[in-house]
Amino acid sequence: MQVKQKVYELYKGTVERVTGPRTVSAFLEKGVLSVPEFILAGDNLVSKCPTWSWEAGDPSKRKPYFPADKQFLVTRNVPCLRRVVSVEEEYDAARAEVVLDDDEGGEGWLATHGVEASNTKEEEDIPSMDTLDIGKAEEIKAIPSYFGSGEKQDEEDDIPDMDTYEDTGDHLATIQPSYFVAEEPEDDNILRTRTYDISITYDKYFQTPRVWLTGYDESGMPLDGELMFEDISQDHAHKSVTIEDHPHLYAEKHASVHPCRHAAVMKKIIDVLVSRGVEPEVDKYLFIFLKFMASVIPTIEYDYTMDFDLGSTSS
């Protein structure tokens, strides 16, 4: 009951904007996507959130059932301002958690209550529709931490141990006036932070999208798997999130959120929407999906803005 109320609150804004229902498709019944539906939803994501693009990937790994230049979706250079571990410690101390979907197998997605955490919102990239309660992204973004002492500590710890590589970015050498290259002068507006490339592939077996993460440290060097787990909700690290080979890329060290429960969770979310009189259109699937993914990677600020009606044709 508690969960239902929570979800209702957070969905209210959308429900109010909803226009008409829509004819049923497979995804409404099972939370899954067909191949053409994935392309449709991907096209919509790219057009609404242009930080996302379609990619071709490695030709030898091309999936014949997708167009050559639309194999998977990617957004790059996404900042990750602080480690989720440090956020969760603060968070857990203050708030209680409930498990949203614990009826099968006991490994449900965590829902966290944290209404009081909405402090001043520094960043404006918060979706206009309030976050699903499975996500903690908003609360976390609200904590201003750009140059806290904790961040500095992280920076030092994260420098990879590579004998041949020396960090080229960290020195602030004096700049002679005759050359004019501003090598990142000391300035609070410049952020040294981890970044992520996030990709979404289609998982044929589970018939759902699947998220992959490639992390880079503050100097742009790839992050080790273990270090990436610091940016993954600890309820998912090593459980639903594992390090695996990317289906379209050679580069290793991709963290991936295992899709075995995606359809069930998506179905759950869709059901809630439907119970409120909204039948979300299939081309909005990835927006809902990405919002749901924010519970797994709450500190990675990718774009999943959803400032349009879930149930209407807005384009």
Binding site: P177, F180, V181, A182, E184, G220, Y250, A251
Partner: peptide
């Protein structure tokens, strides 16, 4: 003097 912010490269290492 016209100073500009230098660009940094990111190489997809293994790829």
């Amino acid at each position: 003097p016209l100073k500009v912010e230098a660009i940094k490269s990111s190489v997809d290492m293994v790829e």
